[in-house]
Design a protein around this nucleic acid. Sequence first.
DNA 1: ATGTCC
Length: 465
Amino acid sequence: MKARELNNLGIPKGIAMQAAMEAVKAAAGKGFKRAELRERIAAIVESPEFFANDELWGTLAASLTEVFQHQARFVGRDAPAPWRQWGDGLEGSAVDQMANACKLPVTVAGALMPDAHQGYGLPIGGVLATKDCVIPYAVGVDIACRMKLTVLDMPVSALEKKTDTLRGAIERETQFGIGASFRKPRDHEVMDADWSVSPITRTNRDRAWKQLGTSGSGNHFVEFGTLTLDEDDLGLAAGVYLALLSHSGSRGTGAAVCDHYSRIAKSLHPELPRELVNLAWLDLDSDAGAEYWAAMNLMGDYAEANHACIHREIAGHLGVDVLLDIENHHNFAWKETHGGEELIVHRKGATPAGKGVLGIIPGSMGTPGYVVRGRGVAESLLSASHGAGRKMSRTAAKAKFNWKDVKAFLDERGVTLMSAGLDEVPMAYKDIEQVMASQRDLVDSVARFDPKLVKMANAGERPED
DNA sequence: ATGTCC
């Protein structure tokens, strides 16, 4: 029986899960059938005290009793922390997750962006301000996942005349897929940083080095396109430019940091009820909290370096200069002052949008994205969406769409797709124009990016190098 | 999003 199934039967993750797995194994050895096991587990979850002295189930019953006693000690708050959402018709489960996050005793305020959808713990598009603590799953698995856009000193006509050259630059200078890495690692000063701030960064340093300059999988991409400025801005004259846009994060090492410290956070907060366990926090003045904070910041520098390598190598491959560079994290936590109070602001799939702060909000492989300038709205905790947001689950998208229709959609818009999974097609995403409209008070659009040559990980892409 | 330990 798998942990997931046991969890559905009411076994909380953590110490009780371990006991449950062992008990189930022993019971199966004694001839318990699957249905009997399910029934028995449910009975123990219901009344663990009845099984306290049972030879087979006693240990599980004891750990369940302990966990449930901790949970009973959870002290809720009189009223949830204030929060509001931007955009209508947001996914119900994402709204529920946001509301739950505002029930945490450590939460000061929240905000939900118009691209919101269900995540792990905090929803994607969720912003959460806490006092003196950090929540690993409110930062996200891909710590410091970010966007970077560079304008290249290259004629826009290259998008039609030099497609093979551009394609070659992407193929050659980054790698896609889970576990993607370079045999000959990229050179970057981030590898001279102190990687011993956490046992996780220390032991993953070599893997991180080999993955420097890679793109990973999921919704990550590298694409060439046009950047259109209607007015002089960003140090550029109004006009149409050739630009390179990338989306990726801290790869395997960032995920390992998240995994390690969220486990610790959960073990330190056994009192949290079921709907809040994935929002377990670490006090910043604790050893684990300080370690996570240092590791998270290192992953921030690492993800920045990751994009720097991608853009440096591609521009170098093409032999062109970079005219403009814009970038921003969207899975990160910052120390910021709000209402005169120093808070920890977590943005999970949300773009920093302080007054005058530049950010990038892409739509999808076949729809425009926008370079934006924040308007500094306090209520949104100085944030905006980080994209259009999914409107369909990956499974649903794979079942519903086919490549023939998608290709036709992309052809119409002059987009060449090098590779991607069917779960990333434009139709699986919300309408970016509507999302931008619902956050008009949060950001001003400065320039439009239209993707023209796009690469994402294939459904089953594995490293080639 | 990751990579195979709940």
